[in-house]
Amino acid sequence: MPDVVFDIIGTCIGYDVMLDAIETRLGSKLKAYNIGTKVFFDAWGTACERDFSYLSQIGNYQPTKKILKATFYRALHHAGIPDPMGLVPDEDLEYLSEQWLKLKARPELSKMWNLLRQEGFTIWCLTDGDKDRVKGYFNNSSIEMPDENIVSCDSLKIGKPTPEVYKFMLNKIPGKGKDAWFAAAHMWDCCAAKKAGFQTAWTNVYEKFPCTDIFGKPDLICEGLIDMAESIIETYKSSE
């Protein structure tokens, strides 16, 4: 039977809750320095992903939520705010950290997973987030996901995109070859998964542009989540 392993945060879970929280708490402060909410969040989140990956590579694995909180004032500094700790008090950081736990699924997620399951696909989750937090995101969105099908990098103490993470996941699932799919909204994720042996599907819901000149081409480039499910199903059936 075929399997689809999904990246979770950014792919299945959107960032709207966090963007709204930043706008509510910091919007006017950021605008005073001509800093947009989306630009700041992208800079903060991207730097967090970088540090998560680098720390993992040097054998000093740290959970993403810890890195996100620890690098907040640094992100404000690099955004051009001269006295970030003076401008933004600790309670604002605590508020944003609490909102990070309240993210919700993208609107199409439930339908996408239902389409795949109806065609016999088993859904798996592979995440850099800690397992309880990811389960909380599903609970926030009234989406059921078997606990045994959620795999967190915390349990491995190595993070994506380290090759061993994808190899571990490929060995864990029953599907191999054409039966093993990896789906993500991050091209670096698809690139690493493809090298490990997965069929790969990328959706444009987050990055918009696939930048194939540096990442190479995934097996599928999709418009949104529903198109990703339908494309995976069609491609799989045509290979049978």
Score class of each variant (00 low, 15 high):
residue 142 S to A: 15
residue 135 K to A: 10
residue 123 I to S: 06
residue 146 P to K: 08
residue 59 G to M: 08
residue 42 D to A: 15
residue 147 D to T: 15
residue 78 H to S: 03
residue 107 P to A: 12
residue 67 I to Y: 12
residue 83 D to N: 15
residue 128 D to A: 14
residue 55 L to E: 08
residue 112 M to Y: 02
residue 55 L to S: 07
residue 87 L to V: 08
residue 155 S to A: 15
residue 101 L to K: 11
residue 88 V to E: 04
residue 92 D to N: 15
residue 86 G to H: 14
residue 88 V to G: 05
residue 156 L to A: 11
residue 90 D to F: 05
residue 52 F to C: 13
residue 51 D to N: 15
residue 146 P to T: 08
residue 121 F to L: 09
residue 69 K to I: 10
residue 64 T to E: 01
residue 73 Y to M: 03
residue 116 L to P: 01
residue 133 R to S: 07
residue 80 G to T: 06
residue 160 K to H: 14
residue 143 I to F: 07
residue 118 Q to R: 12
residue 44 W to K: 02
residue 114 N to M: 10
residue 128 D to W: 00
residue 112 M to I: 07
residue 36 G to E: 08
residue 130 D to C: 10
residue 158 I to Y: 01
residue 141 S to C: 10
residue 100 W to P: 00
residue 43 A to E: 09
residue 111 K to V: 05
residue 91 E to C: 05
residue 130 D to Y: 12
residue 60 N to P: 00
residue 70 A to V: 02
residue 142 S to K: 15
residue 72 F to P: 00
residue 140 N to D: 09
residue 132 D to F: 04
residue 101 L to R: 09
residue 153 C to P: 06
residue 43 A to W: 08
residue 58 I to K: 02
residue 84 P to F: 12
residue 113 W to S: 12
residue 60 N to Q: 14
residue 149 N to R: 13
residue 140 N to G: 05
residue 159 G to V: 05
residue 44 W to I: 02
residue 66 K to D: 15
residue 57 Q to G: 08
residue 136 G to T: 04
residue 123 I to K: 04
residue 60 N to I: 07
residue 126 L to T: 04
residue 105 A to W: 04
residue 56 S to G: 13
residue 88 V to M: 08
residue 81 I to R: 00
residue 138 F to S: 13
residue 102 K to I: 04
residue 135 K to D: 01
residue 127 T to M: 11
